[in-house]
Nucleic acid binder design. Structure first.
Lengths: 457, 457
DNA sequence: GGGTATTTGTCCGTATGTATG
DNA sequence: TCATACATACGGACAAATACC
């Protein structure tokens, strides 16, 4: 006899379903006949449909089966009653939040064009944007067109929109590429030191990694030619993390070599928009005459890392392969975002925004340099400057790294190291300035510098 | 002698830079000395800084180098003059657009809650959302909380927010998982027939694929146990594409087997929200007592495929592995979208929307069934119904498939086949109704039916 | 063992309160 | 405020299986 409450908020058929289910699990055996619908309906004073509905649900889930005009019976299943519950998982570490976070790729939240973006995204959602369909997996063509125009005029990239693929970040683009040329290439040349995300992506797809040293003028071409690398990843404008810029001579030599060997160059142009002393250096892709370059760019550094939009420009000869293999129906970025960004670009807002960001960040960049000069005397060397969102710095005198790390942790300063040697000895710090306002930057750097001074031996 | 136009919109230093660059490339040799800054400035009546700036840019790009107090000289580079231009790429096929597209996963564009979404996304962008930072790579915690609540109450999934990962689509989730458990498992069990995207993802990561046949009650458990599969992908609520529902008995047996062997079950609950005859069947994950299930869900079928938001619920024992390996700073979905969706869920809009969508789609589902009955007589068999966004149909009489395909193409009808045999013989059609309005559906199905009738032999 | 009354699942139309727009 | 839509619940009609005489 079950207890059914007509006044409850849970409907009667639901209550009956639960009651029957637990009875079936606990009391009944396979093949047992359930009371007929009519019996239950009269017994509990319910409508037949109500009972019917409870039965239908039990049937749909496979607890019972019906023999028409005969009755419902318990299906053939066995519920484990053994107590063994889910193993208690090891407690997860909660990420600490820091007072001063020198993350080398943060932007200042005030610098994002909120109001404008709001207007544009409202407009995007108005314009009969079809939210019911799968769109072009390569990205909205209106956005790809806008990016093609930008790249051609501002970055010297030679391309058309059909070569562009919209991705949700740099690593997404790298994964796509790694998947695309898998089987065609096996050796992946990587700047060393270089951006670990690039290395890891190709590692995951089981390419053999060739580490090529980086010199003052970028990747070492002789070492590259001595290696087996077929696909080589480079950051020619502003090498990550050393900041080296690759001169035209090397660019041309690299292009020539890759043309000769049939290899591929991945040009990661991650922060080319942010140069503070000269105009941005035109892309390597623009010098390419033999279709050997995959160009990668992003809006993370110049507009917002939270938007999650990057892009990749494929060389033309890879397009047929791409069209064959990609999922035409699965875009990698939200359509509203794509449409909004397209407006942002084609209405000329992006150019304005870039100029503004360059000025703002140049100020902070110079401010940080100034602060180091004032507070650190001659105990340090600057390795990288003149662009991006961070300055690379290392001690030029004996230095107590261990104490330094502990102290910074104690003062809630989050640091980012450019290179970590096995012995726990650190070579350089990537000091990001983008995430701070000017006042906050002064504050943070001064705390940092006072600890630094204490650790000079 | 260059022509410099002071009235032009392009700045003078830029004009000079271009002029010098082309002269260097075309006329000069390595080591040649450039005219001094002063000489040029007097010759063209320019300020020294203007000339300096042009030189600085050429220097930054590596065309020239400076010997202090001596002059600027042409760097050691060689520009290819050989004509070999970019190979003309093979012309790409432009995707045809169809008059009647029976894509089995489209929704009706009018059904997306535009106004509400606009309001919520404006609110999201107001609420001091930090667009300057990288956010939680696992997904915004507020969204994960909201999804956890929904899954627990509506889908019978037992989970907390820390188990949830926000992805930009189903295949994204599958890729993450394939990468995560790589090395731990090697054999991937796949429903056959089944969703090819799932198979392909694990193939790309070099798992060995075991195809397990599907019977009327879902995947064949005996065949599974005879195979080597360690990780098995299933769609228990509504098998893709056959529509089979897995009874409790089989669910429990599968869970037991996977517990015994230490394997993993991937439960793809892609369209569980859309059931038209019964309430949604509770998830298999909820029956799991031994932490063996990875649950996958999506907003593509119920809200919008263009939003690009799906999610995955990891079993607890995989969390430490995940935390170690994932990129903490790279969310896979735009933060504004995540925040907006979080509001949509936690304010109760999603539940309402689901009810509405269920009703709308049920109508279209029934309408399509009715139209088939009226126009096709007894020449067909329905294989799947009662849920989702498509009905599976096949001829029950001899049928001229070749003529049918040609005719449909001629009438601009886009069809989707559930299974394509090697010989070009087709077994069943997946007829999507979600993308049509009711009127459009009547129109489309009638055209379809008239062609069908002509092809009955 | 065959006819009949009864039981049974199934299908269909309908009323009511609540929530939505 | 009002009209509509929807989930819930009700009862009758039908036909097949079953039980009984």
């Amino acid at each position: 006899m079950y207890h059914l409450d007509a006044d409850s908020t849970t409907p009667l058929h639901r209550q009956l379903y639960e009651a029957l289910k637990s009875e079936i699990i606990q009391q009944m055996k396979v093949g047992d006949k359930l009371p007929s619908i009519r019996k239950i309906s009269t017994l509990y004073n319910l409508s037949k449909t109500t009972v019917e509905r409870a039965f239908a649900q039990l049937y749909a889930e496979g607890y019972i089966y019906s023999r028409p005009k005969s009755g419902y019976f318990v299906s053939n299943f066995h519920f484990e009653v053994s107590g063994a519950k889910v193993a208690p998982s090891t407690p997860l570490p909660t990420p600490k939040s820091y007072r001063y976070d020198f993350f080398p790729a943060h932007l200042c939240k005030e610098d994002f064009p909120r109001k404008l973006w709001k207007r544009l995204q409202n407009k995007a959602l108005d314009d009969s944007l079809d939210m019911g369909s799968y769109h072009d997996g390569q990205g909205e063509s209106i956005l790809r067109e806008a990016i093609a125009v930008y790249l051609t005029t501002s970055r010297g990239v030679v391309c058309s929109s059909e070569q562009i693929i919209i991705t949700h970040g740099f690593s997404d683009a790298m994964e796509l590429l790694a998947k695309l040329v898998k089987g065609h290439y096996h050796y992946f040349g990587m700047e060393s030191p270089g951006y670990h995300v690039a290395r890891r992506t190709f590692e995951a797809f089981e390419y053999t990694i060739c580490n090529i040293p980086v010199k003052a003028d970028g990747i070492d071409l002789e070492a590259l030619q001595d290696s087996q690398a077929e696909v080589v990843y480079i950051t020619p404008s502003h090498q990550y993390p050393t900041g080296a810029s690759m001169p035209v001579a090397n660019r041309l030599a690299l292009l020539h070599y890759m043309h000769k060997t049939g290899g591929l160059i991945i040009e990661d142009d991650y922060d080319s928009e942010l140069t503070y002393t000269t105009r941005p250096i035109p892309s390597l892709q623009g010098l390419d005459q033999h279709d050997r370059v995959v160009y990668m760019g992003t809006f993370a550094k110049s507009l917002s890392p939270a938007l999650r939009v990057s892009y990749m420009v494929l060389p033309r000869h890879l397009l047929p392969l791409f069209k064959e293999s990609y999922d035409a129906y699965f875009p990698r970025v939200n359509i509203i975002t794509q449409q909004t960004l397209a407006y942002f670009l084609s209405d000329g807002h992006y150019d304005k925004h870039l100029r503004k960001m360059r000025t703002l960040n140049r100020k902070k960049h110079n401010l940080m340099l100034q602060l180091f000069k004032t507070h650190l005397g001659n105990t340090y060397t600057i390795l990288t400057q003149g662009g991006g969102l961070a300055i690379l710095i290392m001690p030029s005198v004996p230095f107590d790294w261990v104490k330094f790390k502990t102290q910074c942790e104690a003062e809630s300063i989050k640091l980012y190291f450019a290179k970590e040697r096995s012995g726990g000895e650190f070579e350089a710090l990537r000091m990001g300035f983008g995430g701070f306002s000017e006042e906050a930057l002064v504050d943070a750097v001064e705390v940092f510098c006072s600890i630094w001074q204490e650790c000079v031996l």
